[in-house]
Nucleic acid binder design. Structure first.
Length: 192
DNA sequence: CTAATGATGAACT
DNA sequence: GTTCATCATTAGG
């Protein structure tokens, strides 16, 4: 696959810069049921010195993936019933990651509609737990490298959009930090 | 061992 | 716009 983002891509940018670089890229999952993909339209950065970051305190069983080398997946359960998907960034043993909050569906839309049990395109991937369900990302993808054949990102090299920088959603600590980025005017972003 | 909590979404009014 | 379901993980005793 052309323009597949290599591991070096995730390693060479710092977390904040990578969060912006990922906007406009396409996330692809070749699942047994079929291929699904979508453009990343919304991200949030979580830094190692950031109170809202899971890795802020110390390395634990749950957040261990965040301390891996950049370019692997970090999947975890939130509120006991939803999963969220992050792309790990930063150097090894530095717990940083980027939360993927929303996608614009591209391929496998029927499959996504089936998984999400809705046909409304805007309601398919406009939230972290929604896109996880639509793309069939399971907890088994924790530690999964994002330069593999069946699960990866593609650089679409699209610069035809403005990036909006704002504060993150759904957190109580570090709520004033401007670490959320999304594509201006895209109707698939999660916040109304 | 026990209790508090959370990077949410769906279903309401 | 507001409410609530629901549980693994974590921190504290």
């Amino acid at each position: 696959m052309q323009n597949l983002l290599p591991k070096e891509f995730y390693e060479k940018h710092n977390t904040l810069s990578l969060a912006k670089q990922l906007l406009g890229c396409t996330l692809v999952h070749e699942s047994p049921q079929g291929r699904t993909s979508g453009i990343i339209v919304e991200t949030e950065a979580y830094l190692h010195n950031d109170p809202a970051c899971h890795a802020y305190r110390k390395k634990t069983t749950r957040n261990a993936a965040m301390f891996e080398n950049a370019g692997v997946a970090y999947v975890y359960l939130i509120y006991g019933l939803h999963h969220c998907f992050n792309i790990v960034s930063g150097a090894k043993n530095i717990g940083e990651a980027i939360l993927i909050r929303a996608l614009e569906p591209i391929e496998g839309i029927e499959l996504m509609q089936e998984r999400r049990n809705t046909k409304n395109l805007c309601n398919l991937c406009n939230g972290p737990a929604k896109l996880v369900q639509a793309m069939a990302i399971t907890p088994g993808f924790n530690f999964f490298p994002l330069d593999s054949d069946k699960f990866h990102c593609i650089n679409t090299q699209s610069t035809d959009f403005q990036i909006v920088t704002t504060t993150r959603i759904g957190i109580t600590q570090g709520a004033d930090l401007p670490y959320r980025f999304y594509i201006e005017g895209n109707k698939f972003v999660s916040r109304k």
